[in-house]
């Protein structure tokens, strides 16, 4: 194996083991499951709609992820910098890109596992009526990609500061803006100050807009490429910021 893969696999396993032994990770998973199910039933009216579909469940994912993904990723780099273990990582004969990808993939694995644990809702609903399994699976795929996009923002924020709290606040702010930009209320407010094409462009860059197709059960190339681009951008920035620590900048 190359230095990239040996480094990637070692750090990926370490991060997963850390999560497995961390009670906060279990609390995090439990919070997501209970909040998403509660919102789907109480606010989304999952049963009241009278249709065997999970749109009411998935529609809240962007808002839950705005808070939960920064919380999941805030420690990733800030803790390494604060405790000094970043020095140990940077002294390994491993490319920075492998370290960045390993931390991201470990957090993404936990996020995807969290989504997998909500599948009993899908199974339960399919017992009650005819569920479009293809559309539901697509929505799950979209939700995984959405979680990855928020996580990459969180990773980049975590690499900027030694403070977990500051990392969380930065990630929360950026994630919220990237989500709220697609709300009609925000678009109409922005339209009062900005030219219409710019307002439309900002709205089209929203996470909500990219997730909408997946929510309906459609894999759109635009949505797919949007999420992959956000993930790549987030990880690219993380790599850059981690490398600036080698330059003594941060």
């Amino acid at each position: 194996m190359t230095a990239f893969w040996t480094g990637f696999c070692a750090l990926y396993r370490r991060e997963l083991r850390q999560d497995a032994g961390n009670p906060l990770a279990y609390m995090f998973v439990a919070s997501f499951i209970s909040a998403s199910v509660l919102l789907a039933f109480q606010v989304g009216g999952l049963f009241e709609a009278g249709r065997a579909e999970l749109v009411a469940f998935f529609q809240f994912h962007p808002w839950l992820f705005v808070v939960l993904m920064p919380a999941l990723s805030m420690r990733a780099w800030s803790d390494e910098a604060r405790t000094g273990t970043l020095e140990t990582l940077l002294a390994l004969p491993v490319p920075t890109s492998a370290l960045v990808l390993a931390k991201f993939m470990a957090a993404w694995t936990l996020a995807c596992l969290m989504l997998v644990l909500t599948t009993p809702l899908w199974l339960g609903l399919s017992l009650l009526g005819l569920v479009d399994h293809g559309a539901t699976l697509t929505a799950y795929l979209g939700s995984c990609l959405l979680a990855g996009a928020y996580l990459s923002i969180g990773m980049a924020a975590s690499s900027v500061s030694r403070s977990q709290v500051l990392s969380f606040v930065i990630a929360l702010g950026v994630s919220f803006l990237a989500t709220a930009a697609g709300l009609p209320l925000v678009s109409s407010t922005l339209a009062a100050f900005l030219p219409l094409p710019l307002t439309e462009a900002l709205a089209s860059l929203s996470m909500l807009d990219a997730f909408a197709g997946f929510e309906r059960g459609v894999i759109e190339a635009r949505g797919l490429s949007y999420f992959l681009a956000v993930i790549a951008l987030g990880l690219g920035l993380t790599g850059l910021w981690v490398d600036t620590k080698r330059g003594g900048q941060a």
């Binding site: 040996t6 070692a10 405790t83 020095e87």
Partner: peptide, 26 residues
């Protein structure tokens, strides 16, 4: 390389820490 203040991962055991470093080094 032994960095200043000997930073370590508190959640690991020495065995898992050394194994992690060795595996990361290929």
């Amino acid at each position: 390389y032994l960095p200043e203040h000997a930073p370590l991962y508190d959640d690991m055991t020495p065995r898992s820490y050394l194994d992690f470093l060795l595996s990361a080094r290929g």
